[in-house]
């Protein structure tokens, strides 16, 4: 439901970043917890095994009707992720497609997760000709998917499995990027500050995510 998108230049600097939330009710989790950061003391039995179980159960629940709560011993709200609901009084979902991080999500944490997966992106991309690398990394309940195009890498953080939508979204963003890059004033390391680009990315997100 929540996404973080970064376009990364060949020198590993971000040239465009945005936070997106989807209104599509893939995976609504009802909870009153307002914890925004993993409190390790709150789940002493947390271990790797359960950690690995968690994302798959979350993805399994993605296709189910929203009424069914995920059978998850460690729901994402413990982990400071996008599943962390906002306060009930402020509405279930923060402003849709505003570019602001959803409530309860640390902006810099998402950036850090995305950039820490760059090493894995580079490991994976040398052995494959595919440009779309889906679900290459996980951090808590965040999944990382990437799209490796010439002179740009697109990295997206997502909390639900949405391969097809993300692929189409990547293709759209890539097209916008290529059109931007065809401008002779753009270099691969130029930050993209165009509001139009921003609008197009949001429109694509609305369509595909």
């Amino acid at each position: 439901m929540a996404y973080y998108l970064a376009l990364i230049s060949p020198s590993d600097s971000p040239i465009y970043e945005t936070y997106l939330t989807s209104s599509k009710p893939h995976n609504q989790i009802a909870s009153s917890s307002t914890s925004t950061f993993p409190s390790w003391s709150s789940f002493p039995t947390f271990n790797n095994n359960q950690h690995n179980v968690q994302p798959s159960s979350a993805s399994a629940s993605a296709g189910q009707p929203p009424a069914i709560p995920p059978k998850d011993p460690f729901p994402p709200q413990f982990l400071g992720g996008p599943g962390t609901p906002s306060k009930p009084t402020s509405g279930a979902i923060p402003n849709n497609l505003t570019g602001q991080p959803p409530q309860g999500v640390e902006k810099h944490v998402m950036q850090m997760i995305a950039f820490s997966s760059l090493d894995i992106v580079e490991d994976v991309m040398v052995g494959t000709g595919s440009m779309y690398l889906k679900m290459i990394d996980k951090f808590n309940e965040w999944n990382v998917s990437a799209f490796v195009a010439p002179s740009v890498k697109l990295i997206i953080l997502h909390d639900i499995k949405n391969d097809e939508g993300i692929r189409l979204f990547f293709m759209d963003v890539w097209e916008h990027y290529v059109k931007t890059a065809l401008n002779p004033f753009h270099t691969p390391t130029t930050r993209i500050t165009s509001t139009l680009f921003d609008q197009r990315v949001r429109a694509s997100a609305k369509r595909h995510l």
Partner: peptide
């Protein structure tokens, strides 16, 4: 740099965006 981007993008779009490759 621009030609390769454009070429791959066009190739991907003509093949219906299915698993673009390079």
């Amino acid at each position: 740099i621009r030609i390769i981007s454009l070429h791959l993008l066009r190739a991907a779009q003509t093949s219906n965006n299915k698993d673009p490759k390079k």
